[in-house]
Nucleic acid binder design. Sequence first.
DNA 1: CTGAAAGCGCTTACAG
DNA 2: CTGAAAGCGCTTACAG
Lengths: 334, 334
Amino acid sequence: MAVTMNDVAKAAGVSLKTVSNVLNNYEFIRPATRQRVEDAIAELGYEANLTARSLRSGKTSMLGLVLSDLSAPYYAELASKLMDAATKHGYRVLVEQSAAEGAAELNALQGPFRQLTDGLLFTPLSISADAIAERAGTKPLVMLGEHIMDPRFDLVTMKNEEAAAALTSHLLAGGRRRIAVIGATPEESTGTAGLRLNGYRTALKNAGIPFDPALVAPAEWRRDTGAAAVAGLLEAGVEFDAVFGLNDVLALGALHELLIRGVRVPQDVAVAGFDDVDEARFASPSLTTVSPGMDEIAERSMALLLDRIAGRETADAGVHVKAEFQLKIRESAP
Amino acid sequence: MAVTMNDVAKAAGVSLKTVSNVLNNYEFIRPATRQRVEDAIAELGYEANLTARSLRSGKTSMLGLVLSDLSAPYYAELASKLMDAATKHGYRVLVEQSAAEGAAELNALQGPFRQLTDGLLFTPLSISADAIAERAGTKPLVMLGEHIMDPRFDLVTMKNEEAAAALTSHLLAGGRRRIAVIGATPEESTGTAGLRLNGYRTALKNAGIPFDPALVAPAEWRRDTGAAAVAGLLEAGVEFDAVFGLNDVLALGALHELLIRGVRVPQDVAVAGFDDVDEARFASPSLTTVSPGMDEIAERSMALLLDRIAGRETADAGVHVKAEFQLKIRESAP
DNA sequence: CTGAAAGCGCTTACAG
DNA sequence: CTGAAAGCGCTTACAG
């Protein structure tokens, strides 16, 4: 059997409570007592049983991270940063992939997954704010992304509209007039895709250019679907001189498809994305995109969640944070 | 307070043990009793407390996954598949990033992380087999990768030597004679890099071509380091007509560097990688690489770990599994 | 097939 | 500053 607190207490000649006090850094312990306990711990190689601690205290020292797909570069990079941040604060991260499915999202919100974690970083994609509110429970919950922007919930996100507008304006300043958008439906206006499309429309409007729904191609946010979407536009005979992929993998898929069809980038068609994943810098041509402030998003969301858990943040209404973005002008749309 | 088993037992008019029997699918329960218990569970909305279960049973229903960096595409894709597999079997996955540092690896092996999981999928990169054996404890441990290939441990890996040899032979068959290798030191012969380099040397030997250490450039396995390594070779005046990046991100970084320097791929220099991450297919030119059988690796390693946990696999010596590979011939080295 | 009791290893009021 | 006791919510032998 493993060494228990009881063994430590006996070896140090103190009570259980005193050992617990030492472990939990209780302030008022006689230095000599503390020393004796610490010696006993070292000698016996005692390690606290986290499960027992958790059962009694109700805290698990684990955080939940729910996102659609860990193999998507944006999420992979974000998860990596969040885990590093959590480790720094003594927490571990339990990841759940929802595949953007409502059932999986609900499950993560209420099921055993929730029970095992002290707080949740949640990227909802399918379920509604009301469904979340109904099941939110009492443990802290911080939203990532923009499917839900509701005053009831804490939210850390990015400046989607502003950034998309800035990127579109850059394309317009480069003389592009028919900018295809990949990854949204023409009438979308909420959620990540909708907000980025709004930004695109705002920039067009400011430039006095009418919005043409024919230029907007829906697609799931992957490379293969980005490629297929641009192929669809070309085959439908839609004319365009730029492609705005609503995220980088869409743009990279589109870029690939254009090049194998002999379309020159950026001479014939400029291409731009959104996310600034590492891959974007090393594409050929390198990809113009938006850096959405991922470091800031990771740090702020982790800090907010930990503040809620510790009771340092007590605002009744949700706290909303938007990270700063940066345009990354590269070869694909100089 | 949450609903407990006691509440269910009272509501159903049975003992605690009977409720436990129903929850754990004990075979010999009178159907009527089972029904009453299930009704009570449904009515009260009872959910088992996993922490309590875990304290008593010693099982956590969590699996640990230790890898160096979740933002690396190969690991991101592997982790994603492993999580899906774990979910299918009722397990959750706790991920730990080691940054390939020995201290972090030791920590994952013994610390609280280990305590919280029923078994570990471990990609050691720094620590020795002996160090692992010393700290392996009694819980199941399956190695991923090839830093440790020791009969004491279960291991699921890929055919590094064979695959690297096959890829090199393909480059040779295409008329390439000076194939630079990025991501290893010339004398390396163990670990993932060493094995792949061995395969390269075997293929050269079979073709009667001498091994030139000047063609081998060390680099950490990232895009930026791949680019820097190829830049280093060019600036040192080393002549080569092909580049074998020991993984895809190295190859993609190298590809990018070659193209911005005006080297034509594949006309002047062929480029090949290893891993077949999704990105490889969509690079321009698309990347010739090895598909190492990631699906098989994910499935087999998960199955082996679960078999060890359940006691279905009882071999004293480590079970070693090697997945089948496939060459993916694409534009960068046709 | 089912029950009563013990106990997993901690933390938490409560005393003193 | 420290101790003795209770209890978090389960599962596990042990009986019957």
